[in-house]
């Protein structure tokens, strides 16, 4: 990565709250125009990291550059290039959507005709132009989330931080938000995205950093992370015969790394499910056994997290 291509560069960040070490030596780089996800369970230190990068919290140690500005030395410059979407609905519920955007636009330094025009643009981007004069307090969770994101877009920031923006909303609103994140990237914005939803990180991210207990435990593209831990495809099957009858046969099938049975379900770990699955069907047929269900699970970040920490991501 060339220095000119770096939007965010984080070096050895540390932050403690009393005895709690919330962030311990976190370092990573985010390229311009990419979506970079911080993935980790609740309490991993994602929000603290975002708060430090937003200049809300002062790091105990370390520094970060946002579009070349140090969070320690030039916090106002950092703020001017940033848009922040907090995890909470950080809006005034007794104001309308337009009044909220108008107020926040002023806080970002917009005035007059430029402000009015940008507010209207953002209302259209978030799909709430027809509800502009409705009070935010009366909106659904998904609509509030959209206004929450809209606020961060008002001043056309170069970098946008989104802290768990899909928490607690319906699937349709979630889909809209994920699509809008991709749209922001397509407009050239750099997105730093935190989530504890593995699927979101996988779908959106160019690069992912996995955080746990204040530390970065792995980083790279989705493929790199999966390969990093050598995870295999998991195939869960149910049969019309006792699992014990097929176990010794399937263990001998070429390409099968591991076979186990639990509660009548057989789990097979393989390197390539396309090659192995036909062989499993063939051997089952020879035993006069019928396979009644197949569930193929490609290696994913959940498995990576489990592999690295011994805990599930949602624990």
């Amino acid at each position: 990565m060339s220095a000119n291509n770096i939007a965010i560069s984080v070096t050895d960040l540390h932050k403690s709250f009393g005895e709690l070490k919330a962030v311990q030596g976190v370092s990573f780089q985010v390229q311009r125009g990419e979506i970079f996800s911080l993935l980790g369970p609740n309490g991993a230190g994602k929000t603290t990291t975002i708060s430090i990068l937003s200049t809300l919290l002062r790091p105990d140690q370390g520094d970060a550059q946002v579009m070349g500005h140090s969070i320690r030395r030039d916090p106002m410059q950092v703020k001017s290039v940033l848009g922040v979407v907090p995890q909470e609905i950080a809006l005034y519920e007794d104001l309308t959507a337009r009044e909220n955007l108008d107020f926040w636009g002023k806080m970002y330094g917009l005035r007059g005709a430029a402000l009015r025009q940008r507010v209207q643009e953002v209302l259209e981007i978030i799909g709430l132009a027809d509800r502009a004069n409705g009070r935010v307090g009366k909106f659904s969770g998904g609509m509030k989330r959209r206004v929450n994101i809209g606020v961060a877009l008002l001043h056309k920031p170069q970098v946008i931080y989104m802290d768990e923006p899909t928490v607690g909303i319906d699937p349709q609103s979630r889909r809209n938000i994920l699509d809008s994140v991709v749209a922001l990237k397509n407009q050239g914005m750099t997105v730093l995205y935190t989530t504890h939803y593995m699927e979101e990180a996988q779908e959106l991210s160019d690069h992912i950093a996995i955080m746990d207990r204040g530390k970065l435990i792995a980083g790279g593209t989705n493929a790199e992370l999966v390969q990093l831990v050598g995870e295999q495809t998991r195939i869960d099957l149910t049969l019309t015969v006792e699992a014990s009858r097929v176990l010794p046969i399937w263990r001998a099938v070429e390409g099968v790394a591991h076979v186990s049975a639990e509660d009548g379900r057989v789990t097979v770990l393989v390197a390539d499910s396309n090659l192995v699955l036909p062989r499993l069907f063939e051997s089952a047929t020879r035993l006069a056994a019928r396979i009644t269900s197949v569930d193929i699970r490609e290696p994913n970040l959940e498995a990576v997290f489990l592999h690295l920490t011994g805990r599930a991501l949602r624990d």
Partner: peptide
Amino acid sequence: VAERKSRSLQRLLTTAT
């Protein structure tokens, strides 16, 4: 109080205010 609880205050602090 509501401004602080909703994190609007924190958001204000991420602007140049």
